[in-house]
Amino acid sequence: MKTDLSTFTGEGSPEFTAKVKYLVWLLFSNVFFLTNIPYPNVLKVTILRFFGATIGHHVVIKPWVKIKFPWKLTLGNYVWLGEEAWLDNLSEIKLGNHVCLSQGALLITGNHDFKKSSFDLITKGIDIEDGVWIGAKSTVSGGVKLGSHSVLTMGSFTSKDLAPYTINQGNPAQVVKHREIN
């Protein structure tokens, strides 16, 4: 057998009304999020809520943050989304309270089944508990839970759950020490 992308069905693709909603979102996203214009956070939060996101209080959204589907996004209180963070949420992404997603971090919920010739789409959500810090240019793949107050250091990658209060580094990320907060 060989990969045959002509057999990809696109199963799970959004229906027409969802496509229209997504096109409208893209317009708002390009104007208010994918820009250097420092729009106030309250405006960005209001727009995300209008499009179905669940968002807590005191959320900071820096310029150039890319969010695929706001209606599949939950942000707790005091969440920081750094410049050029990308939430590629084909499935639900949930960030707890006091979570910091640093510059250029990538949360990606979609992948493909390379064992099938049709290369089927696989999506799995991401659950990030309270107090987690995801370092700059780090990547978290779908189906992962980051435990309370865990850290994924700069430039690291995880496709596995991270235990609470651990500092994780590398590709794949490994525990390098336990996090102590004074």
Rank of each mutant, 00 (worst) to 15 (best):
N182S: 09
A53T: 06
F16G: 06
V24S: 05
I181L: 15
Y78D: 11
G76A: 10
F69H: 08
K115V: 12
L90Y: 14
T17C: 03
V59Y: 00
G10M: 08
E84N: 13
L152P: 00
E11A: 05
S118L: 05
L146A: 02
F157K: 07
N36E: 15
L162H: 01
T3Y: 14
T166G: 07
L43S: 14
G104A: 10
D88Q: 08
L43W: 12
F51Q: 03
K2M: 12
A163H: 13
L43K: 11
L90Q: 09
N36L: 13
N171K: 08
G10K: 10
L162R: 00
E180S: 02
L81M: 10
K116H: 11
E92P: 15
T46N: 11
I67V: 09
S117H: 14
S138M: 13
G131D: 08
I67P: 03
H58R: 15
P14H: 07
K94N: 15
G170S: 10
H178Q: 11
V60Q: 13
K160Y: 10
S138V: 05
F51S: 04
V59F: 01
G110D: 06
A85G: 14
T158S: 09
V144A: 08
S118I: 11
K19A: 15
G96D: 07
T166Q: 01
L101I: 11
V24I: 14
V65L: 13
V132Q: 07
D127C: 14
K116N: 09
L75E: 07
L26W: 09
V60L: 11
L101R: 02
P70Y: 03
G143I: 05
S102Q: 04
V24Q: 12
S138T: 03
S13E: 10
G110H: 13
A173T: 02
Q174M: 14
S6Q: 06
G82P: 01
S117T: 15
L43F: 10
I93H: 04
V20F: 05
T35F: 06
S102F: 00
L95Y: 00
M154N: 03
K137G: 02
P38E: 09
L73H: 01
C100G: 14
L48A: 03
T153P: 02
E180G: 13
S102K: 00
V59N: 01
L43Q: 15
L81Q: 06
G135K: 03
T123M: 14
T3W: 09
H149P: 07
N89Q: 09
D161K: 04
T153G: 00
T74W: 14
K62Q: 08
W64H: 12
Y39T: 02
A136P: 12
K21Q: 14
A18N: 06
